[in-house]
Simulated scan of single mutants.
Amino acid sequence: MSLKFFLDQCVPASIGQSLQDSGHEVLVLKDYIPIESPDQVVIAKAQELGAILVSLNGDFADIVTYPPANYRGIISIQLRNHPEIIPLLMQRLIDYLVNHSDVEQYQGKLFIVEVNRIRIRE
């Protein structure tokens, strides 16, 4: 089953390409709203489009400001200014997506994707 992702403006194109190559639908922020849109508008657009938000923005990993239960799903990619780890991060995420392809498994959850693990917060 294919999932739908909404990529924040800070997400490198290679991440979107990896998701598309894995058979998922990828929507890019700049195609829907201005790139300087505030975080609240970004996550609202992801909700409106019925998509899981993918971002490098650490603000979306703050469960107090963005309680996962209120959203369709948030994936926070943890690059930490090391773009060379994108292939490893994406391999970890793609492997996870293959085994967890039901959109309901992302509803109300925050996924923090790191090289060595994926942490899930609810």
Rank of each mutant, 00 (worst) to 15 (best):
P34L: 13
P68V: 09
Q17M: 11
V64L: 15
I33V: 07
L110C: 05
M90W: 12
V26A: 06
I94F: 07
G73Y: 06
P38C: 12
Q105C: 00
P38Y: 13
K45N: 01
E48K: 03
I77D: 01
I94S: 07
Q78D: 07
A51H: 02
D102A: 10
Y32F: 05
D21R: 08
L93N: 04
V11C: 09
I33K: 01
F111V: 00
L93P: 02
K109G: 05
E122V: 13
T65D: 11
V98F: 11
I118S: 01
V41F: 03
P68F: 08
Q9A: 11
V115S: 01
H82T: 08
N116H: 12
L56A: 03
V41Y: 08
E25D: 08
P12G: 07
I120V: 15
N116W: 10
L19C: 09
L88G: 00
K109N: 10
V28F: 14
A13R: 14
N116Q: 07
A69Y: 10
V113W: 11
E122D: 04
I52L: 02
P87E: 02
L93A: 06
Y66K: 14
P83Q: 07
L7Q: 11
E25Q: 11
P38V: 13
S22D: 13
S22R: 06
F111N: 00
I63V: 12
A61K: 12
